[in-house]
């Protein structure tokens, strides 16, 4: 947690440095801005927002764009699948659907709200990560059939698996921890792999998407609630050491506390990963703002450094999410000891 905090403040410091650089190079910007008055103005906010948001196509570079399937569900027509190729503009129409900045509406009938189940860039990345996880861990698992001594990929993965089992699950849940190890292992490797996939240029910002972190933290919440013992509930509805007249305040606070924990999980992962992407994109965006070769090496150096830092953050956030999930579960399954 402390490390996490330190990273956050480090990120803030980098922002400050970037800001200082911005003012230092201001004259360059002013002159170049004056020369290119006729061109479309580069909007760094739009660029960054575009990169960290979901999309219906996977844009690798100009000329290499993968149009992904659009899947819409409407009460009258059921499921419909079409290629996003037909839309491809920020605002365009195909069939009876109108597309406007990520949203589909039915032309002529505003009462129908299509449910968008499209394979977006994030979903494609999600499926890719699932395939990677399955391949990696099937290979690892198969290796144990041959020999109990790990080597190669197993040698790399086994310490991590044992780390999650021993230092995260068993250390924080205690008795009966092994029941939750499969979930925690999946969470850990899922977040880690997707964090890393997100760092690849052109990759999706999956773990920096609130829907993904919402689902993950909801699962932790559900596991916590369904495995909670009597002691956990008695702690919430009859807080120990609290006088009776404080119950009307304390019990609602405790109940809110049940939800703030997974909420913090959701926000933490989302914010950390999105922030990392924003920093790297901002640093690279400086080149386009200044339109100067002089900024290039500085920007690139900073973003390479940030990328290295993000590699650490990718692991750290996977660890933190898993660790805190284990702690919440541990708190729920704790038995009364005196």
């Amino acid at each position: 947690m402390i490390q996490n905090h330190a990273l956050k403040s480090f990120k803030a410091l980098l922002f400050l440095v970037a800001g200082l650089l911005l003012t230092a190079f201001n004259p360059v910007k002013a002159s170049s801005g004056a020369e290119n008055n006729g061109e479309e103005k580069f909007n760094i906010g739009d660029m960054i927002f575009h990169h960290i948001s979901d999309a219906h196509e996977w844009h690798f570079w100009d000329g290499a764009t993968l149009y992904l399937p659009v899947i819409l569900h409407t009460p009258d027509r059921g499921l419909e699948v079409m290629s996003f190729h037909h839309f491809h503009n920020e605002t365009s129409s195909y069939d009876r659907y109108h597309y406007n900045h990520g949203h589909f509406t039915v032309i002529g009938d505003e009462s129908i709200h299509p449910i968008d189940l499209s394979i977006t860039k994030n979903v494609a990345s999600l499926l890719l990560s699932a395939v990677i996880l399955l391949l990696v861990f099937f290979t690892v698992a198969k290796g144990y059939g041959r020999s109990l001594v790990p080597s190669g990929l197993r040698g790399f993965m086994e310490p991590l698996v044992l780390f999650v089992r021993d230092d995260i699950a068993r250390a924080n849940i205690g008795h009966g921890a092994d029941k939750f190890v499969p979930y925690l292992l999946t969470v850990f490797f899922f977040i880690w792999v997707n964090n890393l996939l997100g760092l690849i240029p052109g990759g999706a910002n999956l773990t920096g998407n609130i829907a993904v972190t919402l689902v993950l933290s909801l699962l932790t919440l559900l596991i916590t609630l369904f495995s909670a013992k009597k002691y956990y509930w008695s702690h919430i509805f009859t807080p120990p050491g609290v006088p009776l007249w404080l119950y009307p305040i304390m019990v609602p606070v405790e109940i809110i506390g049940i939800f703030t924990k997974p909420f913090s999980l959701m926000i933490r992962l989302f914010a950390n990963i999105t922030a990392g992407h924003i920093i790297i994109l901002s640093l690279l965006g400086l080149i386009f703002i200044f339109k100067s070769f002089a900024v290039g090496p500085v920007s690139v150096a900073f973003s390479v450094f940030m990328n290295c830092l993000e590699l650490l953050v990718a692991f750290l956030q996977a660890y933190v999410f898993t660790l805190l999930s284990a702690m919440y579960i541990g708190g729920a399954v704790e038995e009364h000891h005196h």
């Binding site: 499926l127 699932a130 099937f138 690892v140 144990y144 086994e158 499969p182 899922f190 829907a211």
Partner: peptide, 29 residues
């Protein structure tokens, strides 16, 4: 949060937990 991604994430993740749990974590552990 978009409903589409919530759906796909839930489905994929649960499938992952199930399949990895049965065919990877169980034999590995």
């Amino acid at each position: 949060p978009g409903i589409g991604l919530i759906f796909w994430q839930t489905a994929t993740f649960l499938v992952l937990v199930f399949i990895l749990g049965k065919f990877a974590w169980k034999p590995i552990l």
